[in-house]
């Protein structure tokens, strides 16, 4: 399920007549099974881009193709699109509404064509993937759960359709470090099983250590894209980290200011560690 984004634009008009261009001519390709991160300052259009890829908004220019087919073309199977693409928005626990956890998670499968027992099996699988004991949780009210449990139930609801593409909008914002780790771990597993993951995040470490490719948005434009490491290095070189740099990169800058210069290819903590070891062992590269 490759995603091709061609000259994608999205603009709208305010009541005063003023035109706002949320996205301008975005072009890129996301390969099947990739783990892509999207980063950029607030207001750069990241959420809008996710909404467009999920087919929740129509572009005002350009097109989005899934496996070569334009998703906004007349006759494209919208029902199928909903099953194939799963979106987890910010604070997904806000979407919960049903009387039992089982019913909420099963919601997305209503038009899937699966039989009742198949649906129950899927719901069980989704909840167990999110770390729940199915029998214990299935009849509880989703609204009465704790914050963390709610979030996991909401994500289970999206997983239940077994989407081939999963979109996450700031999934770890506001989570404690343990939950963050847990989530990234789970996403990696899903990705390894073949699901394409696109994750919007402000967390540089999460992006640096887990994603394979990065898209950098600013003011609606795609200002950089490519393999994660290279993008971080270029961002630092060209914009001195204005669009985001990892803690390891910041430390490298600080050390350089104090006359300890490490190679520019330091992006993650591991890079930092090996560079420091090299420095301490014999001083200087090579």
């Amino acid at each position: 399920m490759s995603i091709q984004i061609e000259h994608l634009s999205y603009a709208y008009r305010l009541p005063s007549g003023e035109k706002v261009e949320a996205l301008k001519e975005i072009t890129c390709t996301i390969a099947t099974g990739d783990f892509v991160g999207i980063m950029g300052p607030t207001g750069s259009g990241k959420t809008t881009l996710l909404q467009l890829i999920a087919g929740l908004r129509r572009p005002t220019g350009g097109r989005i193709r899934l496996n070569g087919k334009d998703i906004n073309a007349h006759g494209y199977n919208r029902n199928l699109l909903r099953q194939m693409v799963g979106v987890v928005f910010q604070e997904p626990e806000n979407q919960l509404f049903a009387t039992t956890v089982e019913k909420d998670v099963a919601f997305g499968l209503k038009y899937s064509g699966l039989s009742r027992p198949e649906i129950t099996a899927r719901v069980q699988w989704a909840l167990e993937t999110m770390g729940f004991d199915f029998e214990k949780i299935r009849n509880q009210s989703p609204l009465a759960l704790s914050g963390g449990e709610k979030r996991r139930v909401a994500i289970a609801g999206v997983l239940a359709t077994k989407p081939q593409i999963l979109l996450f909008d700031e999934p770890i914002a506001g989570l404690d470090p343990y939950s963050r780790q847990h989530f990234l771990h789970f996403v990696t597993k899903i990705n390894q099983a073949g699901t394409t993951i696109i994750m919007v995040s402000h967390n540089m470490e999460a992006l640096a250590e887990y994603t394979r490719h990065l898209l950098v948005l600013a003011q609606g434009r795609l200002i950089d894209s490519g393999p994660t490491r290279e993008v971080f290095i270029r961002l630092k070189q060209k914009h001195s980290g204005a669009f985001g740099q990892t803690e390891a990169q910041k430390i490298t800058t600080l050390l350089a200011k104090n006359k300890l210069v490490l190679p520019a290819a330091v992006v993650t903590y591991d890079d930092l560690l090996s560079a420091l070891k090299q420095e301490l062992a014999g001083g200087g590269p090579g």
Binding site: R82, Q83, V87, F89, P92, N94, F107
Partner: peptide
């Protein structure tokens, strides 16, 4: 957001 999230779920 809620409307879009639910539409996304079908």
């Amino acid at each position: 957001l809620i409307k879009m999230a639910q539409i996304a779920r079908g």
